[in-house]
Write a protein that binds this DNA or RNA. Structure first.
Length: 490
DNA sequence: GCGAATGAAAA
DNA sequence: TTTTCATTCGC
């Protein structure tokens, strides 16, 4: 299969027609080969490891060939000084660029107050670890497509202060915040940030690309809504500023062009007058009534699914037609696939519909009320029939009825959560009984663990070394790899 | 209010 | 190169 898609190569974007699918497919296909088995103990299988270092497999797992993604954050250590896995990837033939700056000074004893013992360390990205959770991801596509009017309203609420657009990571953290909280059993956002920060570099390119794309859209729409905006950080740090606030020469409120004054910390940038000028955004008019065409969340989730379950058939509710377009075989509804149809062109983003749309059938999907976008999104996410119960749902929050089959306890916990909880107990590692239970859950009980994936390797271990990402069941069964971008979308 | 994260953008 | 600030909300 390696040669199958040699044509596409470059980012897929180049060929113009594949909308990036090529790269994804290619990657997924390639991925199949490299996720070797890893050898971990059960606890690691939960996607958590407790201390010290990340299991070596991690490197191989996610980075063996990710290098193409230069990811600056590819890092070795986080800003807080916490070493995020692989200080030395098998590959990191040294020189990985880490200490370009002696952490010393500016870094300045970053004083991490966060109790790290409470922040779980991951062995897999959140997209994998939480993929089967019922907690929906935030609809980032909808978010980044907020109409200009809405954006301006937000500004008004802030008394005229225009905030910066969120970057890819912030969007990511935001998207996974709820799940992360659940997953970690912590409501503390510091933990969420920490975990997200650790997860982010582990995310496969498909996922990060998706968030990068959303970040671009967000920036574009932000710029469109606030044409005069310019980031103007204050010289003085906020906290310092606070202190000298009293003697502060020009209280923000005063020099604010619009005279607006807002208390609170974000008093920083003297802002331009936004409001007005609906004329600026011709393309945004009526936008709100337009269904969010992107649904990119879907595609990235979809990609994610493939990434995780290489070689496994796609969920029954996702299929490709002869043109390579995704659709739901059950409803016949088409699902807009993938990444940026029209990449970076901000205005396109606000455009009612992408030019490409399509086939008559697809109208069904596009015609959905914006609110239903989420449904498609959600259903596409379901990876097991068992989970379809949650589809079409509004925000579905954890329903544990399916676990109740083999567990009766009231506050059901995901397996890893039980593990986490166990860790919170005094000493000792894992309760043997827990291990057994987990083993049973993974191996036999079909009551579908929400952490099937995370547990996968554990099962593998016990069954005798299967791939973390799962057995190679008929590669042909996988729809994606067989579909070549050149097949359709011409 | 601080902090925990990464990244964009300004200084 | 260094600093601010996007988000969030428990502590």
């Amino acid at each position: 299969m390696a040669m199958a898609s040699t044509e596409i190569v470059t980012q897929g974007r180049g060929s113009g027609d594949d909308y990036g699918l090529g790269a994804i497919v290619e990657h997924n296909a390639a991925s199949t080969e490299q996720f070797p088995q890893h050898t971990e103990d059960s606890s690691k299988g939960l996607g958590i490891y407790h201390d010290g270092y990340a299991p070596a497999y991690q490197d191989g797992q996610y980075f063996v060939q990710s290098p193409p993604t230069p990811s600056p954050s590819d890092g070795i250590r986080t800003r807080s000084g916490r070493t995020t896995r692989r200080t030395d990837s098998p590959f990191s033939t040294s020189k990985s660029r880490m200490s370009m700056s002696p952490i010393g000074k500016s870094k300045k004893s970053k004083k991490t107050k966060l109790d790290k013992s409470k922040t779980p360390h991951l062995t897999a990205p959140l997209s994998v670890l939480t993929k089967d959770m019922d907690v929906p991801l935030k609809d980032m596509d909808e978010w980044v497509h907020r109409p200009a009017e809405v954006r301006r309203q937000e500004v008004e609420k802030r008394n005229g202060y225009v905030t910066r657009p969120m970057n890819s990571f912030m969007l990511y953290r935001s998207a996974y915040a709820e799940r992360t909280k659940q997953w970690c059993l912590q409501n503390n956002h510091q933990v969420v940030s920490s975990v997200s920060g650790e997860s982010w570099p582990m995310e496969p390119p498909e996922v990060r690309d998706q968030f990068n794309e959303w970040a671009r859209i967000e920036r574009a729409n932000h710029a469109a809504a606030h044409p005069d905006y310019k980031f103007s950080p204050s010289k003085t740090s906020s906290k310092r500023r606070k202190d000298e606030d009293s003697d502060e020469d020009e209280p923000d409120g005063l020099d604010d062009p619009d005279g607006e004054y807002r208390g609170g910390r974000s008093v920083r940038q003297r802002r331009q007058i936004i409001k007005d000028d609906p004329s600026l955004l011709p393309s945004s008019h009526g936008f709100e009534s337009t269904p969010y065409f992107g649904q990119q969340g879907l595609s990235y989730e979809h990609a994610q699914y493939q990434y995780v379950t290489t070689g496994r058939p796609l969920p029954s509710n996702v299929a490709y037609d002869h043109n390579g377009l995704q659709y739901n075989p059950q409803t016949g509804a088409y699902i807009q696939s993938t990444v940026p149809a029209q990449p970076q062109y901000q205005y396109a983003v606000q455009e009612p519909l992408p030019p490409r749309a399509p086939t008559p059938q697809s109208l069904g999907t596009y015609g959905l009320p914006s609110g239903q976008t989420q449904e498609v999104f959600a259903s596409s996410r379901t990876s097991t029939p068992m989970q379809q119960y949650s589809q079409y749902g509004q925000a579905v929050y954890p329903q544990y009825q399916y676990q109740a089959g083999y567990q009766s306890a009231a506050p059901q916990l995901y397996e890893h959560q039980q593990y986490l909880q166990a860790q919170l107990q005094p000493a000792h590692a894992i309760d043997p009984s827990l291990e057994i239970m987990l083993g049973d859950a993974a191996a036999g009980v079909h009551a579908k663990s929400h952490f099937e994936t995370a547990m996968g390797d554990m099962t593998a271990d016990e069954l005798g070394g299967m791939d973390y990402y799962d057995q190679q069941t008929s590669p042909d069964a996988t729809l994606a790899p067989t579909w070549s971008p050149t097949d359709g979308l011409k």
